[in-house]
Nucleic acid binder design. Structure first.
Lengths: 355, 355
DNA sequence: TTGTATGCGTTATCAC
DNA sequence: GTGATAACGCATACAA
């Protein structure tokens, strides 16, 4: 094997043409005789030519305007992490010409989403990163972007039609399955487990149902459905009925509850309840490294948090766009981030890890 | 804020000097008047100048020969993963001039290590990545490299003196602590747990003792030492005594064993035993995603594997050298990779993840 | 249909 | 002390 990597100049020399011609062949710009074309292609192949990405990025120093369409962290602090990941990626890629404009929408109001998406559609962007939490309302935009040839990357929620450049995420079903395993491992005797959806409009959040389904299936697949009784609970505080009251009722009806699986990032609400009522026999599993959750994780009231690197989702999303736009590098169209199991004892590695 | 990032040229223009002068200041090459020096520094600071790494790497297209000194995967397949990580990094960085030469030593023979390390010392490398599993024998080389000004990165085993460019790893103590938590969570009644060192020269492997200490401390710190009895077991097969026989004896002496923590990657040996003897009441926790371990993990005989991204250790090790050599980018001198908890249900994300 | 010249930002060499 | 200038590999406008 030769020591140095081959350059366009090397190909040109062997083909007895100029670098301009080689370039035209490599970029399919035409205006070159078929005979020469074949010769150059053959040589490039033989030499296993790989363009120097550095040089390419250096010469193409355009600025690429990228839009990020994400929910408001002020409305749901889960979105702080993806936002931070987006900003970290932007910081790294700024010098290569990536510029990110954030479009923040209220995750509780479809209209807010439409409004922001319209703004993006009205502008011209080189690429778009979006957390399409409103399924139906997203489709029209995907359609438009696809027609316009604008690459878009999805994260958090998968919508496989319309061929996004990449999907990054979240495997809701499997995470529910994993939660089943963790509660099962912690309780070997016959008992009840609760799947709790907290303050959610469950009909509009199919991923929460996927989590529930995964959880239920864990026990079903092992013929354990008779041993473990899974109680579905849709907890929403109302004027008449606080969540604590609803939990009181749940425990009254099923005193053998030994585990609670909270399907969103609000496990801390249940933790607060358990602490208040001094209930210690029920293990608690939730999602996401929110500050409140970490508080109860460190107290030992939350046993495990399942985490799918939300900061990384934003980070890799922007990077995927950059790889495509700047480096013309192909990535796998789907990237599942690992389902990390976080407990008090390994927490700090995940908090401190850069990405 | 301005739109484009600032270049040397911009600094030069504002300071009314040429780019050559700015360059001399930025690189401390001297031959520039103090007055101008201060002015340029101030402007660079004000403009928040960040060099364009692409351009820098492009112009410095030397080839950097890097040595990797690692144990033989054929002797201990654990080392396949770091080796794969090293090769992946090399593949990525080849075009920037990084070339890696691997020096493989037999992890069971010090002389093999010395032999390979001598080869490296006899040659001239721009940087070195090493898994210094032989503590005492490594020191002399670190000393030499440090004197020669050759940057070296350590992984897998930390030796903080001699200031390596970076250490990547493994937090043995904390991983033992985590194992304690996991066994504790799986067994709430009074019982015995075994810490098993399998086929190891325990005196020479301080990191295994750190794991044991972390495990013991988990129970001690929660005043649980009276509830859970920790049995230390140093299992080595001899002509007279197979490991199975030693385990038989262990179970005979302590029939209340409800968990076994294997401190190295050989949990599969215990798993095989448990399967053979049809013992189901003892949870098994081990390390590392070796094929044999995965087999028993999938069977449910191994409950959890603790993993500290060994592929990533090799990968980031080479990258750290490249960042230093090519990009002159400063990294944190210590990088702990997360202590991942792997179970059957989240395994495949870790296997498939690129790094 | 083909070749040449210029520039991207940085480094390093040379002449003044 | 300082300022031009060539080079790195690639892309592209333009000349031939």
């Amino acid at each position: 094997m030769n020591n140095h990597t081959f350059r366009i100049k090397d190909i040109a020399a062997r083909a007895n043409v100029s670098i301009g011609t080689v370039d035209r062949v490599l970029h399919n710009r035409g205006r070159v005789s078929e005979e020469v074309r074949q010769r150059i292609l053959a040589i490039a192949d033989e030499l296993n030519y790989k363009p120097n990405l550095l040089a390419r990025a250096l010469v193409n120093n355009k600025t690429y305007n990228v839009a990020a369409l994400i929910p408001d962290p002020a409305a749901d602090s889960y979105w702080q992490a993806p936002k931070a990941g987006i900003e970290k990626a932007e910081e790294e890629l700024k010098q290569y010409g990536i510029r990110v404009t954030q479009y923040i929408f209220d995750p509780f109001h479809v209209n807010s989403f439409l409004e922001q998406a319209d703004k993006i559609a009205a502008s011209t962007f080189s690429g778009i990163l979006v957390a399409p939490i409103f399924y139906r309302q997203s489709l029209a935009y995907f359609d438009k972007w696809k027609n316009d040839g604008i690459p878009f990357v999805l994260f958090n929620t998968h919508i496989p039609d319309y061929e996004p450049l990449m999907y990054i995420g979240q495997d809701s079903y499997q995470s529910g399955f994993l939660a089943g395993k963790l509660l099962h491992y912690g309780c070997k005797e016959k008992c009840s487990f609760v799947v709790a959806h907290i303050e959610e409009d469950i009909l509009n959040s199919s991923h929460l149902l996927h989590k529930e389904q995964g959880f239920v299936d864990y026990f079903a697949k092992q013929q354990l459905a008779g041993v473990y009784n899974v109680i579905q609970a849709d907890l929403q505080s109302t004027a008449q009925n606080t969540i604590a009251q609803q939990l009181d009722q749940l425990f009254a009806e099923a005193p053998d509850i030994k585990g609670i699986f909270v399907t969103n990032s609000k496990a801390s609400i249940v933790a607060e309840y358990l602490q208040d009522r001094q209930i210690t026999q029920a293990h608690l599993i939730g999602y996401d490294l929110m500050e409140k959750n970490l508080h109860y994780l460190n107290l030992g009231i939350i046993e495990f948090l399942i985490n799918q690197n939300p900061k990384g989702q934003g980070y890799w999303g922007i990077h995927a766009l950059a790889d495509y736009l700047i480096f013309q590098k192909k990535n796998n169209p789907i990237k599942y981030l690992p389902l990390d199991i976080i407990t008090k004892e390994n927490l700090h590695y995940y908090i401190e890890s850069d990405i």
